[in-house]
Amino acid sequence: MSNVARVFQNPAEGMITFRGDLASRTVKKAIRSVAGVAMPPAGEIRGEWGRGVGWMSPDEVMVLVPYADVGSATARLNATLSGTHVLVADVSDARVCFRVEGGQAAAVLARLCPVDFHPDSFGVGTLRRTRLAQVATAVWRHDTGFDVICFRSVADYVQGVLVNAEQSVLRGALGS
């Protein structure tokens, strides 16, 4: 019955880990052609779950495409960038994505991550890889809340701690 925050798993979409020289014009063009958005600056995401690009490190981005398009997107990236030193890996089935929505979504995540989620320092489009409870995640803010990517192997754990945090925000840490 919670309306302060809502946690659920996003429908499966395509995720492609891309490593290479992000400043290269050829690379930028190739990424744009499959993701439909420009290369994001450090610490940001362009687009959204299912179609976009998230900045993961100085030489890595996560390319988001519809699940059905992963095969063609990886093939296109590899073809356009043959001869360029890059890595293209389909990780769609190795990661999952959760959504945390509602007015208290930031409070839910703040219970789990050592991150200041205030909109002044973590606005829409901000992406940060961080620690969520005991596991590695990538978190970004969008118009209706946050999306959280983690390894599929820890999906049950992440679902559990997110729901638990949501309940704590709703009832107070000790329950009532």
């Binding site: 450090a42 610490g43 490190s57 100085p58 050592p114 940060r128 961080t130 620690r131």
Partner: peptide
Amino acid sequence: PYCGVRADETEL
């Protein structure tokens, strides 16, 4: 120095 994130000790 690479991503500019102010990282807490537990992220390092």
